[in-house]
Nucleic acid binder design. Structure first.
Length: 198
DNA sequence: ATTTTCAAT
């Protein structure tokens, strides 16, 4: 894609939207999801830039049907018609971890698409709905990697999915207590994933 | 240990 095209067309998010929605200390009422795709070739993962970008959940505003970010992503992925003879790795960075229903949908996708590996990094744990722990465990059991975003992932997204306009080398500005919160959430997630009861 | 949770008021 041309370097001069609009940020949105290149799959880039503006800086403030990123900082406002991926901050792991606050509780926004919306979800953003970055995704990128790689294909296995000669034992190496080759990035496929045409399958890289981001999306947001759809709200009840404008009379639209409410949809979580994950079904929108699954629909977008289905439209790619990835070659079942090849091996793909899709990495998702999502501001809220999948709810139980979305986890189930992702699990179903993984069962039906064995040629796709899925890695999910979440900024925060969405624990509002009953059964969220079982949903996360089901994702892991289906072969997905599930982890919390740490400084490394926040910085990665900043560099790879955020539009910095003139200042391409603008460093990621971490918020206070990013690391402390990330560590807390990682410990919580580890406990959830290790727990056997469903 | 903590909570504001893919809104609605």
């Amino acid at each position: 894609m041309a370097a001069g095209s609009a940020p949105e067309a290149r799959g880039l998010m503006d800086e403030q939207t990123f900082l406002d929605n991926f901050n792991n200390l606050i509780y926004p009422h919306k979800t953003y999801l970055f995704y990128e795709t790689e294909r296995m070739q000669d034992d190496l993962w080759i990035p496929l830039d045409e399958y890289k970008g981001f999306l947001q959940n759809k709200g009840a505003d404008m009379g639209l049907e409410r949809r979580h970010a994950e079904p929108i992503f699954l629909e977008r992925m289905a439209s790619w018609n990835l070659d079942t003879e090849l091996r793909y790795r899709i990495t998702v960075f999502i501001s809220w971890s999948p709810c139980p229903d979305c986890a189930d949908e992702l699990v179903k996708f993984l069962r039906e698409n064995r040629h796709v590996n899925l890695r999910i990094f979440a900024a925060r744990i969405y624990d509002y709905l009953q059964g969220y722990e079982a949903g996360l465990r089901a994702l892991k059991a289906a072969g997905a990697e599930v982890a919390m975003m740490t400084f490394q992932e926040f910085e990665y997204c900043w560099k790879n999915f955020v539009d910095h306009q003139q200042d391409e080398d603008k460093p990621f500005p971490p918020w206070d207590n990013l690391d402390v919160r990330s560590e807390e959430l990682s410990q919580r997630l580890a406990g959830i994933l290790q727990n056997q009861e469903d």
